[in-house]
Amino acid sequence: MSRIFASFVRHPSGRIGLVIVSLYIVAAIMGTFGLTPHNPLAMVPIDRLKAPNEAYWFGTDILGRDTFSRLMVGIRQSMIIAFASVACATIAGTIIGLFSAWLGGIWDGVLMRFMDVLLAFPAILLALLIIAIVGPGTITSIAAIGIVYTPIFARVVRGPALSLKQRDFVDAARTFGSTQPYILTRHLLLNLVAPLAVQVTLALAWALLTEAGLSFLGLGTQPPTPSLGLMLAESRNLMPQAPWLMIFPALTIMLGILGFNLAGDALRDILDPRTQRREA
């Protein structure tokens, strides 16, 4: 574990990704405990649409709320949804992929074709469909984004699981009479940790974007809770007068995605056995 962290710090773009992701996590935690410069929900009519200044670092919106504080809480909201949905997708996708590979035959066919159907829809469209059926809200967003990314995890797990299943150590385990749950967890899942870790990091970036998209369309987080997508949507009509209302949330989204992507790429390099061998 410490070795992976050390390689992260050594990896040039991994270092940048790590800094960004840490920054966002700190911001999210501070947002949770109210450690923001201003109350993100407090409306100060006299300070409406202030440009960035010493008191309001990123300016204020049309209701006089501090953009910086709202961004911190927005990051928290986005992170909660991203982490929760990716967790759902990881668990569901891993189980589906693992069973699909292990059982094979008709199970494999049915499960993976169903995953293909889900994958055929554009992510945001599928999430829209689910929310349209259930109704908007934080929990619905988590479920919708989770379902959208499940097929990707199912695929990432199924491929290596199929080849692991053929390996001698799985055959050896069968000759001892090891139970299926034991083989599935110790021999298959344990060897899938590396590809899964990479996929989780990358999926967090996509989930962040999808969440922002849903909120922008008014189907994710509901006002008055601040959210990155929602702030973008509110800024649309005020763009000429208050460009900071759009620039800062957009930059926040972009930087977040960049951070997770860089971290994911670095993780892939670090966990790749070929690069490991080169270091050894």
Binding site: D168, F169, A172, F176, G177, S178, T179, Y182, R186, L190
Partner: peptide, 20 residues
């Protein structure tokens, strides 16, 4: 190929016994 690279020797050796 016949030893799971992610398990230590103790876990590898214990497996047949635990399985039974």
């Amino acid at each position: 190929a016949s030893l799971n690279p992610r398990l230590d020797v103790e876990a590898l050796m214990a497996e047949p016994a635990i399985a039974n």
